[in-house]
Structure formats: C-alpha cells, structure tokens
Amino acid sequence: MTTSPDTPAGPARPAALVNGEPYPLDGPVPVTDLVARLVPEVVVDGVPRGVAVAVDDAVVPRGAWDRTEIRPGMRVEVVTAVQGG
C-alpha cells in the first residue's frame, strides 16, 4: 500500500499504477476523467457503461467517481465485461 510503483529509468515523473502499468500524472485526476481517457468508447451520453474501477483494492462506486481523485502511487484497476466463462 505504501510502496510506489517502479519508476522507469529516466527523470522520475509522478505516476499511478493503472492496470499494472505506470500512468504518469501531472496532478490529481478524478476517476471520471481517467475512465474517459482510457476508454472513451464506453462513455455514452456522458455515462460510462459496463466499466468498474477499484483503487487500492477497493471498488469506487460510480456515484463517487467525480469526487475520487487518482494520485501518484495509487493502484488502479479499470475493468469491463469481455467474452469468457
């Protein structure tokens, strides 16, 4: 929880770990904005569909996306339904 993700070689830039990969952040980003950047195709009429987000192993309910900010060092999972099972 306290460990930061490995920073790639080069000048250190603050980053969150999004789906297992470093995601550079210049400042805090609301979950809503992160989702819109990652998967713009799932946002229909401003409402993201079929996507869920967890931050540091806890689900962030959609109603809390606007007020939940992603900051450097956070571990974020953004998932959706795919074929399977």
């Binding site: 999004v18 789906n19 297992g20 990969e21 950047r37 990652l38 998967v39 195709e41 799932v42 996507v51 869920a52 999972e77 953004v78 998932v79 959706t80 339904a81 795919v82 074929q83 399977g84 099972g85």
Partner: peptide, 17 residues
C-alpha cells in the same frame, strides 16, 4: 450468459480502437 471481467486495454498511440 456468462461474461468475464478483465482490464480494459490501454489506448495505444496510432492504433485507434
């Protein structure tokens, strides 16, 4: 019908969709 939950693919520069 079952579906699985997986990480969304990160957008890759140059390859839209």
């Amino acid at each position: 019908t079952t579906v699985a939950m997986r990480r969304v693919a990160r957008p890759t520069p140059g390859a839209a969709g």
